[in-house]
């Protein structure tokens, strides 16, 4: 019985991991290619959630799940072109300050527009319910989140591995100077990567809006975890981030089972452990320009 229950917590942890995955992947992509630690990534997640709440009454949740990430990706386009693009080659501290400022502006704007109180938003009726597998219980909606996450991960992986676009991006991560020497400008690729990354964050926000409190601080709350996932997974490693997200979810589930007050702390302890044993993260690649 106890073993079965622990197994149930492990599987549930994998579902929790899927929540972090979409955000962490984008964060990792922007950092790998642009060298920018995007502290505003959580803000795009929050904006995605609020757009979903605002748009759902008119276009439905099904519509919002498409439109909200697209709108946020367009916002990402504007911000990348006007602001981020000035900082790719500069001191990393500058882009850190810029994105930190952006995150604060976004949080305060959401507070001014929608108020500080949580905005009510529920799972649409057609997605509600639970799935029982023997003794185990799953929320139908979380399984859908998992499915969406798996689709996005597969899509992103194919994009990076199987397309000309992906080849340039991967080359850009490893050696931007060589890419430039071959006469390829990374700028449009960087714009596209930022749009994809913030779009994924907004998609995560959209998916999480019905099951978590929609408040201006939701972005800051999730961002820390996304960072931990990226650090554990290792820089530049696609599957590292995927594995780390799942491990973090499982560790949280097991900590909640064994010693609840350490539910959050367990994840940070895991990060410390990984950094001690493998400073580049679980699957981190050696990237010359960051050494």
């Amino acid at each position: 019985m106890e073993i079965v229950f622990i197994l149930e917590q492990v599987l549930n942890g994998l579902l929790i991991g899927a929540n972090y995955l979409l955000i962490a992947l984008g964060l990792s992509l922007i950092f790998s290619l642009g060298g920018v630690v995007n502290l505003a990534h959580g803000a795009f997640y929050a904006i995605g959630a609020y757009l979903t709440v605002a748009l759902s009454p008119t276009i439905g949740f099904g519509g919002a799940i498409i439109v909200s990430p697209v709108l946020v990706a367009c916002l990402g386009l504007v911000i990348e072109r006007l602001l981020l693009s000035r900082f790719y080659r500069g001191d990393p501290i500058l882009s850190l300050l810029l994105t930190f400022g952006l995150a604060m502006v976004a949080e305060q704007s959401l507070r001014m527009i929608f108020g500080a109180a949580p905005v009510p938003f529920s799972i649409p009726l057609w997605l509600r319910g639970q799935v029982f597998m023997g003794e185990f219980i799953y929320s139908k909606y979380r399984l859908i989140i998992l499915a969406v996450a798996v689709l996005c991960v597969a899509g992103l992986w194919l994009l990076l591995k199987r397309t000309a676009f992906g080849r340039v991006v991967r080359a850009g991560v490893q050696n931007p100077d060589m890419v430039a020497a071959l006469g390829i400008s990374l700028r449009p690729y960087m714009t596209a990567v930022v749009m994809i990354a913030v779009g994924l964050a907004a998609l995560a926000g959209t998916m999480m809006a019905p099951v978590t409190g929609v408040t201006p601080t939701m972005g800051a709350e999730i961002l820390t975890f996304a960072f931990v996932v990226v650090v554990i997974g290792g820089l530049g490693s696609f599957w590292g981030v995927v594995c780390a997200a799942m491990i973090v979810g499982v560790v949280r589930g097991l900590a909640a089972y064994a010693f609840p007050p350490a539910t959050e702390a367990a994840v940070y302890m895991l990060m410390v452990l990984v950094l001690l044993l493998r400073p580049r993260g679980l699957f981190g690649e050696r990237i010359q320009r960051f050494e």
Binding site: F5, E8, Q9, N12, G13, L15, I16, N19, I137, S139, R142, T212, G213, M218, E221, I222, R252, G253, A256, Y257, P260, P261, A262, T263, E264, A265
Partner: peptide, 20 residues
């Protein structure tokens, strides 16, 4: 009886414990 960290946003592990 569980003490829950104030930063926690996902309660699913605790919901499973309640159910058990």
């Amino acid at each position: 009886e569980d003490l829950v960290p104030t930063e926690l946003t996902d309660f699913s592990p605790f919901l499973l414990k309640l159910r058990q």
